[in-house]
Design a protein around this nucleic acid. Structure first.
Lengths: 140, 140
DNA sequence: TATATAACTGTCTATTTTTGTCAGGTATTT
DNA sequence: AAATACCTGACAAAAATAGACAGTTATATA
């Protein structure tokens, strides 16, 4: 049960973007340097984040990325949704009926319930929450 | 964010074991047939489950596995702990200080919090709960 | 207008993890 | 003794992950 580094990178990159932003665009290069994340890999993530309406791109010199919405309107679960596929813990639900003992369906309730908890927890936090926490840490 | 099939198999196998048990031991072969899980793979899982004090083995003809404890004392999180390493969503905490912008630490709080939720949810369910649910489904 | 900058795009690849398979060995009941 | 079933370790296919690479396109500024 691991959150992929893809998701972790995406969240970290966006917190970094918001911390360093000051309104203007922040280049992927800068985020890559700050966060020690491969530039090429970040580019792939930001393509998805742009398509997912999390960020807007600004081309040309001095360009980069800005948040597409206020930070307090960007939930963590949205971020993860845009870069990876699912927060549901199992693929499940093929339900081809091949199992005659049917403990499969009994266990589904665990994973569905777990998925709900994961979702609601991540939906309860916004990028703004994390950024405030990050700022607090920087002051120490 | 996926629960590994290893963990899913372990939980399903134990529910199946408890459903088909009737006090006596159930062979891995039977569970394998019922659940359509590779016999060899199940063997590997049950080695861990035995070491984790979840099941006891009974050797010889008519042998198999029995629960080492009453089903209502076996929590789902225990099961998953014994077959896979972690319920903490990130590897994290290397904390080599290489990141000067330090959004890394800010995001850790998300994953730690998430890990807590996952843990407490899975700890709130026992094998007995799942088995009852399985029995209910069989009656329909 | 030229040039530097930085986003954009698609393809390819090395590595790791997952999910098993296979070939035997060992213990125990009948 | 023989059948049953657990036990063990080595090996392997397949998928996911993380990232490299080689370009193309858009735009601000000199």
């Amino acid at each position: 049960m691991r959150m992929s580094t893809k998701a972790q990178y995406a969240v970290r990159a966006l917190v970094s973007l918001n911390l360093n932003g000051d309104g203007g665009p922040v280049s992927i290069k800068k985020i890559s340097d700050c966060e020690s994340i491969s530039l090429n890999y970040l580019e792939q993530l930001f393509v998805k984040l742009r398509r997912g309406q999390i960020v807007r791109s600004v081309r040309g010199p001095g360009g980069g990325y800005v948040l597409a919405r206020p930070a307090d309107e960007i939930r963590v679960d949205e971020i993860i949704d845009t870069v990876e596929e699912t927060l549901v813990p199992v693929s499940c639900m093929e339900n081809d009926g091949s199992c005659n003992c049917d403990s499969r369906c009994a266990t589904q309730s665990v994973w569905v319930g777990l998925g709900d908890r994961i979702r609601s927890f991540l939906a309860s936090m916004t990028l703004d929450d994390l950024t405030r926490e990050g700022r607090k840490r920087l002051e120490l």
